[in-house]
Write a protein that binds this DNA or RNA. Structure first.
Lengths: 135, 135
DNA sequence: CTACGCCTTCCAGTTACGGGAACGTCAATC
DNA sequence: GATTGACGTTCCCGTAACTGGAAGGCGTAG
């Protein structure tokens, strides 16, 4: 299969697939004319990568997961450790985003949003520094 | 004030302050010896920036907010528009993260995490492609 | 022969800084 | 006066994970 077909079948852009090859996640064969030739195993790998990336794993985590996946002697504990670590990263991001969301929502709700210059959003941005939002 | 004092007073790293000058968010004066000299207004601006960044606004949004802040003829609607746009970005990110969190949590909970290779996390990553998580 | 679509490589840009080198400055101390 | 140490300066590279685009080769249809 050529890269275009693989792109269609995996949902990944061709650019991304080339990138994955460049960083050694993948080693597709080549036709005599220089075109990449992908096997079903390559497609499988790419789907694994696409799914892992869509769950937010970094490329290096994906590399590790892929390594474990192809190692029959793996311990599921190792997989779980990666996933748990990633999960806690997600939890942290979520907390930060929720805080932002709450603060912003309050500010936005208090802004009348008309043609007058008076604006609690700007007042807040200008006034506070490190103090908590609602002391 | 020199950059170190400003860094302490604003909580921003000196590197960041220099960067903000480089991208024209700030134009501190200079001493004869080449050292940056910051006014109280500069400090105020930097606090505004720090606070805006901590709410997740991009640099360009900060630039726009700062412009509105220093424009007495602004319309609060313009400020609100920026904030609302940003808020919807946050909402989107939150949704994505929540989905990831849910999926990952389920997978992690189903993995025994011992020394055996059997692992539902890997099975899931390998098996699914675009189908919803729980059909 | 040419046109078109696919493929290739390579280079640059993205975001918002952080690290570190190499070097100048200032105040205090010896 | 020399030195030390803490500060300041500029400049360049690296980050994550791609994306866009240029310049050019390949394959097939008309």
């Amino acid at each position: 299969m050529n890269i275009g077909d693989v792109a269609k079948r995996t949902g990944l852009p061709a650019k991304t697939i080339r990138y994955y090859e460049e960083i050694e996640l993948l080693h597709p064969a080549r036709h005599a004319n220089g075109y990449r030739y992908f096997s079903e195993a390559d497609v499988h790998k790419l789907r694994f990568l696409g799914r892992s990336r869509s769950l937010g794993f970094t490329i290096e985590e994906c590399r590790a997961l892929l390594g474990l996946y192809s190692d029959p002697g793996r311990a599921s504990a190792d997989v779980k450790a990666i996933a748990l670590d990633h999960l806690s990263q997600i939890d942290q991001k979520l907390l930060k985003l929720l805080e932002m969301q709450q603060t912003l929502r309050q500010l936005v709700d208090r802004c009348h949003g008309d043609d007058r210059p008076d604006c609690p959003i700007l007042t807040d941005l200008a006034g506070k520094e490190k103090a908590p939002r609602s002391p």
